[in-house]
Amino acid sequence: MEAVRKPFQGVSNIVRFNWHFYLLSLLFIVLLLLLSGVAVTLLQHIITVLCLLAGFTIIVSLLVSCYIYDLSKLYQFRWIQPTGAEKVVVNINAGFDETSALLENRFTHSQLIVLDFYDPVKHTEVSIKRARKAYPAYPGTQTITTARLPLANNTADKIFLILAAHEIRNEQERIAFFKELRRIVKHGGEICIVEHLRDTANLLAYNIGAFHFHSKPTWHKTFQAANLDIRQEIKLTPFISTFILQKHGDTL
């Protein structure tokens, strides 16, 4: 598998998979400008402000996305320090996998198990469907449900969910899923959750789009309900947080 990201792959994929959104936004701005041509002076000023706000919001979100996914070295995974003793590493995605090949390069002596909980009934976003067509699944990827993971108890040394876990929208389903993560991770193992948060930084960057993410209190509630402790929290950028989890009661 190719494990090298192309320049500006992140932001280009965002535009590529969400082109309908940007097209509709452009049509909306053009429509407003046409209306301003027949509007009274005050309304013209209001329309101009709306157009500027719409354009500014789009540009800011793309610039922030470029910083996060292309310039911040997010996908270099410098916060991951393999010990060489990891026998089983599990990577779980929600239909779009950019990270398994990268993790394979980091854990060269480990068995990498890739699981995909994408459900076309629940995950109806056209962007995910386009992404799945553009990027084939990692070889050996297993399709799963969030209700039951096809691994025995205490199997995994490390489990990764990178920008995927927020797709589990139902709280009880999310808690049950994290209980499954707790079941399959070894004592002394780690569960690594990488996510945007519904916080001030992401609200400023993505406007109402930030409501697709979960807040930090929501994640903490999920972890606690699944009997998981936060071993470490890493702020990779102002917009991305990583939670390193362990079984409750485990010590370093």
Score class of each variant (00 low, 15 high):
V121P: 11
T83D: 07
F56S: 15
L53C: 14
I46L: 05
R5L: 15
L35S: 09
I128P: 06
W79T: 12
I144T: 06
G55W: 06
Q142W: 02
H20L: 15
I144L: 00
S215L: 07
Y118N: 06
C192I: 14
L197Y: 14
F17S: 01
V4N: 07
A176G: 12
S25K: 00
P238M: 09
A210Y: 03
G10H: 07
T218M: 08
D250E: 00
P136S: 12
L27I: 12
P217K: 04
I14F: 13
F28M: 11
L163V: 07
V194R: 00
K186H: 01
Q172H: 14
T200H: 07
N227P: 02
R198L: 11
A39E: 08
K235H: 06
N105D: 14
V126G: 04
Q232Y: 03
A201S: 07
I80T: 04
K87E: 15
N105E: 14
I208T: 13
L26I: 09
I208S: 07
P136L: 04
L23T: 13
R132A: 08
R231C: 10
Y69N: 06
A85Q: 08
V88Q: 11
P139V: 07
C66T: 14
R169D: 11
S25T: 15
Y118G: 05
P120R: 03
R5S: 15
A176Q: 03
F21N: 11
E98K: 08
A152I: 09
L149T: 12
L52K: 10
A131R: 01
V30Q: 02
V88A: 08
K133R: 12
L151I: 05
R183C: 05
I68F: 07
S241V: 13
D97Q: 02
N207M: 01
H212K: 13
E173D: 14
Q172V: 11
R130N: 10
K221Y: 05
L115I: 07
D157W: 02
F160R: 02
G189T: 10
A156I: 10
I58P: 01
L50I: 08
G188L: 02
K6L: 15
W19N: 12
N13V: 14
V60T: 10
C66M: 10
P82W: 05
R198H: 13
P136N: 06
I175V: 15
L197P: 06
F17V: 03
I184P: 01
G37T: 11
A39N: 04
L71A: 06
L103V: 09
V89L: 05
V185M: 01
L31H: 02
K158L: 13
V88P: 06
E180H: 01
